[in-house]
Amino acid sequence: MSRASESELDKLHGLLATGISAELARAIERAEANPDDPDKAISAALLNQVTNFLKLTGVTAPASSKRVKDVEDQLAELGVDVDNVVAMRSNRPK
């Protein structure tokens, strides 16, 4: 079997990114339309899939990003020590 060309791999990557993005958008719409129904919440599996895709492709957000700040604020409201989480992540073995 021959190896895929760079353009074929790029196309596959684009299709995967588009598919994951579309699925996440649908999950968000379902969750927002049914905020009191836990069966309509965004699944942990989907969130892990998105996170892993971003991690594997080297996608990060700058710490100064408003979206990062919004997530930090939401975690703080839940009582999560954001500084501790960041420190734990940076000390994890690769």
Rank of each mutant, 00 (worst) to 15 (best):
S2F: 05
S2E: 13
R3T: 05
R3C: 06
R3L: 10
A4H: 07
A4G: 03
A4I: 02
A4L: 13
A4T: 08
S5T: 14
E6S: 14
E6W: 08
S7D: 13
S7L: 09
L9E: 14
D10S: 14
D10W: 10
K11A: 14
H13G: 09
H13S: 14
H13C: 10
L15E: 15
L15V: 10
L16Q: 15
A17L: 15
A17H: 11
T18F: 13
G19L: 06
G19I: 00
G19D: 15
I20N: 04
I20G: 01
A22R: 14
A22G: 09
E23G: 03
L24K: 02
R26H: 14
A27K: 00
A31Q: 03
A31V: 02
E32A: 05
N34T: 05
P35S: 04
P35C: 02
D37F: 00
D39Y: 11
K40F: 01
K40I: 00
A41Q: 11
I42V: 14
S43Y: 01
A44S: 13
N48Y: 11
Q49P: 01
N52G: 08
N52C: 07
F53T: 06
L54D: 05
L54A: 15
K55Y: 07
K55Q: 08
L56R: 14
G58M: 06
G58H: 09
G58L: 04
P62E: 10
P62F: 04
S65I: 01
K66L: 09
D70I: 00
V71R: 09
E72D: 12
E72W: 04
Q74Y: 11
L75R: 01
L75D: 01
L75V: 01
A76Q: 12
E77C: 07
E77W: 08
L78K: 14
G79K: 02
V80Y: 07
V80T: 12
V82E: 01
V82A: 02
V82Y: 01
N84K: 12
N84D: 13
V85S: 02
V85K: 03
V85I: 05
A87P: 02
A87Q: 10
M88G: 13
R89H: 12
R89V: 11
S90D: 10
S90R: 12
S90H: 09
K94Y: 08
